[in-house]
């Protein structure tokens, strides 16, 4: 089992630069608008709860105010906003999500005595997702020809992580510089950091 992640950059917060030249008005506006996540409008309450459970397995957040992820996926589905690519093996994005969520729940019920995904403890949820990623499915009919791994990686994982890693909290925990306009960076070489960057991080393998 993997250990709970500990950030190499404790105490660093890109939002401390909010009033600095690293933030421009348009970026502040975008981040401000995202503080209040959009209301649920596309998925039904059960589907939404399942999506939230999936987000929590994919990105375990131990912070008091977790970065909201599910509401933004729901909002994109509501708006019909896609990615520009529909693989021929995949149904249109909305159908793919509805089908995928239902199939994941069906996989949970088939593997764990009729219990739905949300009723499982975290390690079992994770194990189930790994089986799905391997294509090791117990409810193949629920996928209705949609390739499980393609849904899991190309839609579910990808959209969750792209939303999470655009959030300032996620940028901070990996020591990324965050918004940088108009001020960018000056010191580009190893061992050099600008005063407005994260201080050097510490990793267990280097302790």
């Amino acid at each position: 089992m993997s250990q709970p992640f500990r950030t190499p950059y404790p105490g660093y917060d890109v939002l401390d630069k909010w009033d600095s030249p690293s933030f421009d008005d348009q970026t502040r506006e975008v981040l401000r608008a995202r503080r209040d996540p959009p209301p649920r409008r596309f998925l039904d309450p059960n589907q939404f709860a399942l999506l939230e459970a999936l987000c929590a397995v994919v990105i375990p957040q131990r912070r008091p105010e977790p970065v909201p992820i599910a509401p933004f996926i729901d909002a994109a589905l509501h708006a019909g906003r896609g990615t520009g690519t529909r693989f021929a093996t995949m149904p249109p994005e909305r159908d793919a999500w509805l089908r995928g969520l239902e199939a994941i729940d069906a996989e949970a019920r088939a593997a764990f005595d009729g219990r739905g995904f949300c009723e499982l403890v975290r390690p079992k949820q994770a194990r189930l997702l790994r089986s799905i990623d391997r294509g090791d499915c117990r409810a193949p009919e629920a996928w209705q020809e949609m390739p499980p791994q393609k849904f899991f990686r190309a839609l579910l994982l990808k959209q969750i992580v792209q939303i999470y890693y655009s959030a300032p909290a996620a940028m901070s925990e990996i020591g990324y510089g965050g918004p940088a306009s108009p001020r960018g960076y000056v010191r580009l070489k190893v061992g050099q950091i600008d005063p407005w960057e994260a201080p050097f991080g510490t990793w267990e393998d280097q302790a």
């Binding site: 992640f5 190499p8 994919v58 994260a198």
Partner: peptide
């Protein structure tokens, strides 16, 4: 890779390296 969970957070924690 299909990576997720703490494995992913850990891998992303090495972004700067």
């Amino acid at each position: 890779t299909g990576m997720f969970g703490d494995d992913l957070l850990e891998a992303m924690g090495r972004y700067n390296r």
